[in-house]
Design a protein around this nucleic acid. Structure first.
Lengths: 143, 143
DNA sequence: GAATCATGTAACATCAAATGTATCATGAAT
DNA sequence: ATTCATGATACATTTGATGTTACATGATTC
């Protein structure tokens, strides 16, 4: 499986939108992400459905922030892009015919579950607003 | 990407081998794992290189345990099968042209890093021997 | 020593999911 | 009416695990 970079990409876009006046076109965003405008629309559709951005057609159209950055966490964005599988490892299926397999799968799943809980908690503890402020603190804000 | 099940599969095999006298052929193991003998040889090659099992050719050949179950952890097995990528998500590459991208990637990587550390610690804290004893405790041992 | 059994290895096919691309429809601004 | 931008569909590409075929090698049995 290829590594899913939708979360990182969308965070990147959202922070740029926060520092940008007016709408950004899918083309402009695609250039930023070094990808394609269709990929951008496809991925941002999730953010739009979640109400974090909105899109406008026609002249002067594009994407606009539609949320309070402090109210949206990395976890929210993760879910908005589809909440994909976090782990690249794991048991095949959980219908083991064999008790040994069952026990092993459960042991692995338990460790994965703890790591997942920690990861989602970390994602849930960071808001876009905090990231934006981190950026300003580290690289200087124009004010 | 497809989910990597080598760790679970190898744990399954190793516990069976512990409860089994004499060598097990790749064919027998493949049947157990509902896969192919070549896949078994390919995957178990890592365990053999790590010294956890050995293989013998010819009549009466097959795979044999070659370790103390209490001395091998899930982490050891994970590494023996190649220590594959744990996460299915993450940033594209870490050569960001853009400072926003850099900050975002670092924020995501930090959370992933903590989850990875926890996961590897959990894997390192469980030995095959403990799994085997868990099995006996839960499903009854023949003694 | 010939047949058989089992592993070792190489080469290629399959699969799944993200990503990339082409195309056309739709709606808004000029 | 034209242009610009999104919306949506269909298909191609990529990547790595997994599946499969084929053949070589070594060990055992007869």
């Amino acid at each position: 499986m290829r590594r899913d970079s939708r979360l990182s990409r969308m965070l990147h876009v959202l922070l740029h939108m926060a520092r940008h006046d007016g709408p950004m076109t899918s083309e402009a965003i695609a250039t930023m992400l070094r990808t394609n405008a269709v990929v951008v629309r496809r991925t941002m559709a999730g953010l739009r459905d979640a109400g974090y951005v909105r899109s406008e057609k026609g002249h002067g159209g594009g994407w606009l922030l539609a949320c309070d950055l402090d109210a949206v966490t990395l976890l929210d964005v993760h879910r908005a892009v589809g909440g994909p599988q976090l782990f690249a490892i794991g048991a095949e299926a959980d219908m083991p015919h064999c008790l040994v397999e069952k026990l092993v799968n459960e042991a692995v799943a338990e460790a994965l579950g703890e790591a997942e809980a920690l990861l989602l908690a970390r994602f849930g503890a960071v808001s876009l607003g905090q990231l934006a402020r981190d950026f300003d603190a580290r690289y200087g804000c124009p004010s």
